[in-house]
């Protein structure tokens, strides 16, 4: 029973790598590519700044609140609230969780955009002209978000700490200097690099996998919807797996 499923999964992987080979070739026109890159950076990266910032500020605040409730014991110094906020943000939230959110936002955007181009034959029209459609449409998206999104991680981290600071100063659960001491406690700068690298990997997964599902959509608009749902699910699962592997490898 498992065998056909395994076989189709293998086929899917094969198709994915064939598509990636088409994507990673020299663009037909470099100036056009640079222009597309700017457009995609704006569309996929910049436009996510607001949502990432909003979510991060709340999560940072919640983590600070929760950890202070859970650190009732008088033997644990209060500054651990800051420490825990920082560690949670940098290790998991700002990379993995933000990536999962982005998978929903830009993953569905990419899959439905490319999918509808596929079913309305716009991709065929490009191919007929002799344009490498995969390269033209997908490469700028992959590069734009793989390069830009690590900065979203950085943003999320900083804004998250700010959220913690905000809630600490609003509620007074601990003093601000305790919070700042916690933030600086045993700080490992390479966690940030690690987290940004993770974010780059996740962004590659999101854009390439979503593009793959869009590029191979067929049928009508219902199918485009379906393939964008499948794209998000696939992105999320792969992100979680890649997260596991990278955590094992890099830490």
């Amino acid at each position: 029973m498992c065998f056909p499923m395994f076989k189709s999964l293998l086929e899917l992987c094969g198709q994915y790598f064939i598509l990636m080979r088409k994507v990673f070739s020299r663009p037909d026109r470099m100036p056009v590519f640079w222009k597309q890159l700017l457009v995609e950076t704006e569309k996929l990266g910049m436009s996510s700044i607001a949502i990432v910032a909003i979510i991060s500020i709340f999560i940072g605040a919640v983590i600070a609140l929760q950890s202070s409730f859970n650190l009732e014991s008088p033997f644990i110094p209060k500054m651990y609230v800051g420490y825990m906020t920082r560690e949670t943000m940098v290790l998991e939230f700002s990379s993995t969780m933000v990536a999962l959110i982005l998978a929903g936002k830009i993953g569905s955007n990419i899959a439905s955009e490319i999918g509808s181009m596929r079913i309305t034959e716009q991709i065929d029209a490009m191919e007929i002209m002799g344009v490498n459609s995969a390269n033209y449409l997908i490469l700028p998206k992959i590069i734009a978000s793989t390069v830009f999104n690590p900065f979203l991680m950085l943003l999320s981290f900083i804004v998250g700490l700010f959220g913690g600071w905000l809630i600490v100063s609003l509620t007074g659960i601990i003093t601000l200097s305790q919070y700042f001491d916690g933030l600086q406690l045993d700080f490992k700068p390479h966690y940030i690099t690690y987290s940004m690298a993770k974010m780059a990997a996740f962004s590659f997964v999101i854009t390439s996998v979503a593009s793959f599902f869009g590029y191979h959509a067929y049928g009508g608009s219902l199918d485009v919807g379906r393939s964008s749902t499948r794209a998000i699910v696939a992105c999320c699962v792969i992100i979680l797996i890649v997260n596991l592997i990278l955590t094992q490898l890099l830490l």
């Binding site: 181009m117 034959e121 716009q122 065929d124 029209a125 002209m129 002799g130």
Partner: peptide
């Protein structure tokens, strides 16, 4: 691909880039 630069095609649904 090179040959295709000499081909023009009108699709049944026009297939304009939206």
């Amino acid at each position: 691909k090179n040959m295709r630069k000499r081909i023009g095609m009108l699709f049944q649904g026009a297939a304009l880039f939206d």
